[in-house]
């Protein structure tokens, strides 16, 4: 379940900590003298893509993808993944894990015989975590930012 946001032209929408500075304004109206605006009572904030892509900016980090082991989940080389550290890594979620000295993005599957990190590309094999020291989950992937 990953949210996919397609950014058309503003790369700095990705600075997640700065929620107010990078709003994507979908429409705006000029202030006219004379008549009070009939919309004044319905004043709303513009759409905030940061709020859409993460619930918790404090715990959210970005990382750039280099490999192709998750292309089946639309995570492709060059993409930015959005990682929320405050979410519980439950079975079935895509996670950023640190395994055997390296970071990797895989789908976490908790099975009766242990925890697996599964790729979404037939070229690669699952990693079985059979020792607690072997690896740990750094955060849960909650979105992908792509540029087209």
């Amino acid at each position: 379940m990953e949210a996919e946001v397609i950014i058309i032209d503003r790369p700095d929408v990705m600075q997640l900590h700065d929620m107010t500075a990078h709003r994507l304004s979908l429409f705006s109206s000029a202030v006219q003298a004379g008549f009070p605006s009939p919309a004044a009572d319905y004043d709303a904030e513009p759409i905030d893509l940061n709020a859409y892509i993460t619930q918790n900016p404090t715990a959210t980090f970005l990382a750039r993808v280099e490999g192709d082991s998750m292309i089946g989940a639309h995570i492709e080389p060059g993409d930015l993944v959005v990682i929320d550290r405050s979410l519980k890594p439950t079975s079935g979620r895509i996670v950023l894990a640190f395994v055997a000295g390296d970071f990797t993005i895989k789908r976490l599957m908790l099975k009766p015989d242990g925890a697996y990190l599964e790729p979404e590309n037939p070229k690669y094999e699952s990693i079985k975590i059979n020792h607690p020291d072997m690896g740990r989950i750094w955060g849960v992937v909650v979105g992908i930012v792509k540029k087209v």
């Binding site: 980090f61 970005l62 790729p119």
Partner: peptide, 14 residues
Amino acid sequence: LYTTSVAGVLNIKT
């Protein structure tokens, strides 16, 4: 600059 620059974020070989 892992958290303050898009060019500085972690690179992940998936």
